[in-house]
Simulated scan of single mutants.
Amino acid sequence: MLIRRAAIVAAAVIAALGLVGCQDQRQEPTRPPVSWTTAPISDDQHLAVLGAARAIDPCALVPRSTLESIGTVLTVEVDTPSSCAAELNSTEFGSKTRLNWSISVDRDPLASFEGAVESRIGDAVVFAERDGAEHAPDVLVHTCMGSARFPVTIGLFVQVSTPVADKPCAVLDSVLPGALDLLRAAPTMGTSPDTPESVVAGADPCAVLSRLGTTTPLAEQFVHGCVFDYQGSTIDLQYSYTGERIVAQGDPILVVNGHPGYDLRSITETYWYGAVLGPAIPSAGTVNSSLGPRVPVVKVMGRDPAVLREVLTRTAELFPAA
């Protein structure tokens, strides 16, 4: 099946990048290995980096053993195929500690932000906030964030929120070095018990282009998104996890391989179509009854509904029958 083949290709890409300690000796001359300390140059190298980033297990970057050194771990779960979140100590706003972290790929230089201090952790450039800012008396939560990126263009964003009396940047400082070490080790999907199996985890959002007979520039290809022109219409395609009832509240428009598709159009000139691609992923907490369980979804946006319907159909065909 195509998804299984994609997983095999992703594993080969990681080997080609030298992310698992060895190189694929059978790689083509046009696909040279790229190390974490080397910036990719060719389009093939950039595409290999994207494939490698998709194959990394996000929840494995901050394991429960690390979280337990911070507080009592209540939940750990994926937000998206490339991000994870954990709640500690309490479920109450103003009392809980929450960490969010996500994997990214960006060819542009890592940008600073207000309040950030630049540093280096190994080969990675880091911009992170520091504790010590004054807060208004009615503020209940203190937040600290940091971004890091290796020369290979794979990066990590971490945000920590704590009760205002605590020091979230101290938590960030305790987490970031180990998370970057693990990122460089490139743990594969399924390494963490908190990362569920999912048909979109590791999937290439631009894989449908070959079925449509079109291409798109490298700058329009992302970890879980793809922007391309097709039949005179610009299409934005995204893989995500979404509450099943949010998708199912749209008007049913098709079923492909058992995957239901819906018209999610808002009141604009732009149409949103979406399809459920697989079974619900487990929830670490209570499922919101109004949203339903989270399911792997493809969403496509554009201005021509006929074109969107075709793109949605061809994308759903890539995934195993429900």
Rank of each mutant, 00 (worst) to 15 (best):
G250I: 11
P217V: 05
V256L: 10
S290P: 00
V287T: 07
L254I: 13
Y271F: 14
S289Q: 11
P217F: 03
L277E: 07
T214C: 08
T286K: 04
E244W: 01
A201E: 04
W272D: 15
A201R: 14
F222S: 10
C226K: 02
A275K: 04
Q221Y: 12
G258Q: 05
E244Y: 00
W272H: 15
V298P: 03
G225T: 07
W272T: 15
Q238D: 15
D263I: 05
A284N: 05
N257R: 14
G243A: 06
G225M: 11
S240W: 07
V295K: 03
P217L: 05
E244D: 14
G274D: 09
Y262A: 08
F228G: 01
S283P: 10
S210R: 14
E220Y: 12
V223G: 04
C206F: 09
I267F: 09
V298S: 06
G232S: 02
A203H: 01
W272G: 11
R294W: 04
C226R: 04
P296N: 06
Y239H: 13
T216H: 12
G285C: 00
A275G: 09
L218P: 02
P293G: 05
Q221W: 10
D236W: 12
H259F: 04
I281P: 00
Y273K: 11
Q231A: 13
D236H: 14
S233P: 00
G225C: 00
P296F: 08
L264Q: 08
G261M: 11
A306V: 11
T268K: 02
L264I: 01
N288M: 09
P260D: 03
Q238H: 11
T234D: 00
Y230M: 07
G232C: 08
G292H: 01
Y239K: 07
Y271Q: 12
H224R: 12
Y230H: 14
G258Y: 08
T214D: 05
G213W: 01
T286F: 03
L212I: 09
V276W: 01
L254W: 11
Y262F: 15
P282G: 04
Y241G: 09
R245T: 13
R211E: 14
V276G: 00
P205Q: 10
R211K: 15
Y241D: 11
G232A: 05
R265A: 15
T286S: 06
V255L: 11
P305V: 04
N257Q: 12
D229A: 15
D204N: 15
S289A: 09
G261N: 06
D251C: 07
S289V: 10
S266Y: 05
H224W: 02
T234K: 13
I253N: 09
Y273I: 04
G232H: 05
P282W: 05
